[in-house]
Design a protein around this nucleic acid. Structure first.
Lengths: 266, 266
DNA sequence: CCATTTTGTTTCAGATAGTGAGACGTAGTT
DNA sequence: AACTACGTCTCACTATCTGAAACAAAATGG
């Protein structure tokens, strides 16, 4: 009986409120937030109180608005730093970007989508949170497709169910079938191309980052624009890309915490 | 009766577990985490389950370890982006760093400490999460002191109680009194200097970022080393620093969400 | 100025979800 | 095989969360 789903709990509810506020994208008042959630007013009120008390939300008394709080930034800092991928990949990405003079992305699979962990841009440097933490579609980005392609069949199917198949451009895959077909090819060839499938004029080549046991732990891509390169040009970068991806995979594997002493030694 | 404190709730407990894992700084197993918390084993176990299910933690089945999850990174991305300070300050910081060819920091007050939101480094570019989200002491950094100095008396007192007064260097303030005295001077002069109080050889000049109502909303600093500059040199940068800080303050004020459409248009 | 509406906050009995001592399963050791 | 160490499960207990309804406080408007 009782359908299915559910199984949240107070913590789940609180976190979903955070997500909702994040998706709205600006500070919100209680009533504005209310229709976006499925909770009655007093419940939502209490959740907001709790989260505010925990610094997960910031409350502006003047405007009576809630926005995402600083504790998140602090925690994410730690998360990024102690992730077994991002900090390790950093020097490799630096080197690759410098050598090829192109934009390099590092991503990780998150619920069928590509979550960008790092970005190196040869020309205009510096991207902070504005890039890291961003999510892109799995079915029409280079890193997305390559990570999907190297997934175990079962996980791949799960992930495929979560794709939106929105046609951003004429080249975007719009069905599971056509995507699946390309994924098989990608798995064989070892690299994925984004042929303006997400944004017109933007192309890229992407490789998987694999663990020793061949599990996908991330994706690495070199991005360019059609006015600067062709897909064939990108293909030439494949050796560099693959060796960097391999290097990162090995580093991530062999490392596994050399007890880096960041933490809060404040 | 019953002493005082408490007042957590399930959410608070769950979040404190996140903090604990963050402070440990590497993936942990259940038993390793256990002594760091005040929860009995089955309770902690369930909290970990919940957080893992929510992607706030990542679980490595091979090693049976938990580490901070990707959802944090996603949320922090949103938090950074929709904060009324960091994204707005970005171009100003870029310009300042470029003009002066120095390292520039943007920080915000977080529980008496300086939480770094952004950093621009003239020489070696790029600092991602490795910098943003980092916290530094309030009593012995330029941004920290300047933000404390411009606080309302009451909030200042609260914040002062939270200072550790650890003597990082011979120049570090080690008492509330000596710090308080300097804070008064800072409030008058409008800028704070860090005279190697946190790290030997590192000096900086910092200015507050103020809202229209003169509330401190952040701190901005220009950092250098004693081998490159003297405090007097930094003093010469004061006009540039102040005008940038003012510019950021005004931008943050006038803006207040022009309904930027980031969100997750994935 | 008071009436009206909207939004934020509090109450409280009832329902749920969290709690943790203890038992149990499962590796890994000796 | 006995032992140890750790992860997982059970279950009666109860702390916590729930949300309709009432209330308070602003904002609105006539």
């Amino acid at each position: 009986m009782t359908e299915k789903q559910q199984a949240e709990g107070t913590v789940g509810k609180a976190l979903s409120v955070l997500d909702t506020i994040a998706s709205i994208g600006h500070p919100v008042r209680l009533v504005e937030l209310l229709p976006h959630t499925k909770y009655p007013k007093p419940t939502l009120y209490r959740l907001l109180q709790t989260l505010t008390a925990q610094s997960m939300l910031a409350y502006d008394p003047d405007r009576q608005t809630y926005s995402l709080g600083v504790r998140l930034v602090r925690l994410a800092h730690a998360a990024w730093n102690q992730s077994s991928l991002a900090p390790i990949a950093r020097p490799h990405i630096d080197a690759l970007s410098k050598k090829l003079c192109t934009t390099v992305h590092l991503a990780q699979l998150d619920n069928g989508q590509a979550l960008y962990l790092d970005k190196r841009n040869a020309a205009s440097p510096i991207e902070m949170f504005s890039q890291a933490g961003k999510v892109g579609p799995g079915y029409c980005t280079g890193v997305g497709k390559v990570m999907l392609a190297f997934l175990e069949t079962e996980q791949q199917n799960d992930a495929l169910k979560k794709q939106a198949f929105h046609a951003y451009t004429p080249n975007t895959h719009t069905s599971k079938e056509s995507l699946q077909k390309e994924l098989n090819e990608i798995a064989k060839s070892g690299v994925a191309f984004d042929n303006e499938e997400h944004e017109p004029g933007i192309i890229c080549i992407a490789a998987p980052i694999l663990s020793a046991k061949n599990r996908v732990i991330g994706g690495l891509s070199v991005t360019s624009s059609t006015r600067r390169h062709s897909l064939a040009d990108l293909k030439d970068l494949q050796p560099d890309l693959l060796s960097t991806a391999k290097g990162i995979g090995q580093a991530a594997e062999s490392w596994y915490f050399p007890d880096q002493n960041n933490s809060l030694k404040t």
